[in-house]
Structures are given as structure tokens and as C-alpha cells.
């Protein structure tokens, strides 16, 4: 499909990867896009690896299969890097966004030779700082919106604030923290994207990682 961004989410049951995919579909819809947001259902249990998917397009989306060659991969739980082949099919001109306190340099050796952009977001830290609890999906959602560039920062934040106002109508005190978490993660991812773009190449970054791998 032309003009379609495909995103694959990896998380563990209970972390909200599915909710994040549905929220991203929601916010993209509000900015006028055609959207799909859907999870893959397996034997659902807390902590088991799960995947969720987004297609976001200017045109009507008809494909109803999972996504095997995503433009972006989002990893909500970095421990999955050891057990799930998260970069399978990931396009080299796309990006992987990982929830981790580590740097992209430290993460790249775990990505099975992926040469594209690697963005890291310490969603746990952001969430605990801004919300007082670990809800990694909110910062990851913001980082994904920033990385994919499917909508402007202003539009994204405005729509998310409206969603939160609806969702947390009975506890408006949490809206500010959620918005702060979104902004922090969005800005971090945007800066990372600009830096890697400035380099002009995931590929270049990839090379250095290969060298790093060899030396390791």
C-alpha cells in the first residue's frame, strides 16, 4: 500500500501496548487519517509477549493481515529484545523505538544486525517521574508519534489532551502528569530523530554498530 505507515508494537501482557496502538489509531483518526489499530490475540496472560499493530494511511486501508515489514517497531519492554526477534522485517529506512534507560549504542548489539535508526526512551523513568507510577505506554505513544511524524507536535498534544479529559473525567488531577510525560517523551524522540537524520543515515549508524558488534 502506498502512503501507508505500518507500525508493530511489542510488549508484555498488561503493559498497555494494545491500548497504545488503539490510542495512536484514535489520535491519527482525529487528524484526518485512515487508520487501523489491532492486537494479535494469543493465550493472553500477564507478562506474556504480545504484539499489536497500526496502519496509518491517507487512503482507505483494506489489508487485514498482521504486519511483517513494518516501517517502525516499538518495544515497550526491553527484556523482549532477548527473546523475540523484534526487528524481523523492519525497514532499514524506518526506526526502532525502545523503552530503556540505556543508549541507542548499548541497545544496537541486541538488534540482530538492524542497520536503521535506533531511538531510546526511558519511559519508565518519565512515567514514574511525571505520574508517580510505571505506565510505559503513554511515553512510548508520544515517542512513536514523534518518530513517525504522522502529525505535528501541537496536533498530537491537543488531541491527546482531549482524550485524557474524556478518559479521566473523574480524576482530572492526573491529566497534567500524563501531558507532561507525553511532552517529555515526544521531545526526546524528536531530538533523537533529528540527530540520526542529521547523520543522514540509519545506514551509517548501522555500520558503526556492526563494527561495535565485531569488537564485542
Amino acid at each position: 500500500m502506498k502512503n501507508t505507515v505500518e507500525i508493530r508494537w511489542h510488549g508484555r501482557g498488561g503493559q498497555g501496548a494494545k491500548t497504545a496502538a488503539l490510542l495512536l489509531a484514535d489520535v491519527a483518526f482525529k487528524t484526518g487519517c485512515c487508520v487501523q489499530g489491532f492486537p494479535e490475540y494469543g493465550p493472553e496472560r500477564m507478562g506474556a509477549p504480545i504484539t499489536a499493530f497500526n496502519r496509518i494511511s491517507e487512503e482507505k486501508i483494506r489489508v487485514h493481515s498482521n504486519i511483517y515489514d513494518p516501517d517502525y517497531v516499538v518495544v515497550v519492554d526491553e527484556t523482549l529484545l532477548h527473546s523475540v526477534h523484534v526487528t524481523d522485517g523492519l525497514k532499514e529506512d524506518g526506526a526502532i523505538i525502545v523503552n530503556t534507560a540505556k543508549s541507542a549504542k548499548e541497545i544496537r548489539p541486541l538488534l540482530r544486525g538492524y542497520k536503521g535508526r535506533v531511538l531510546t526512551v526511558d519511559a519508565r523513568h518519565i512515567s514514574e517521574k511525571m505520574l508517580g507510577r510505571n505506565f510505559p505506554n503513554t511515553p512510548m505513544l508520544a515517542a512513536t508519534a514523534a518518530a513517525t511524524g504522522i502529525m505535528s507536535r501541537e496536533k498530537f498534544l491537543r488531541e491527546m489532551e482531549a482524550s485524557f479529559a474524556h478518559k479521566f473525567a473523574k480524576k482530572p488531577e492526573v491529566i497534567r502528569g500524563n501531558m507532561a510525560a507525553l511532552e517529555m517523551a515526544y521531545d526526546k524522540a524528536e531530538i533523537d530523530m533529528m540527530r540520526t537524520t542529521g547523520n543522514s543515515s540509519g545506514k551509517k549508524a548501522g555500520k558503526s554498530s556492526k563494527e561495535m558488534k565485531r569488537s564485542a
Binding site: D26, V35, G37, F38, P39, I61, H64
Partner: peptide, 12 residues
């Protein structure tokens, strides 16, 4: 309608 593929996927 198809279970999960349609029933649980958010689309326009």
C-alpha cells in the same frame, strides 16, 4: 463478522 480481525480492530 470475523472474530478479532474485524471485531477487535479499530478502523474508520
Amino acid at each position: 463478522q470475523d472474530g478479532f480481525i474485524t471485531s477487535h480492530a479499530v478502523e474508520n
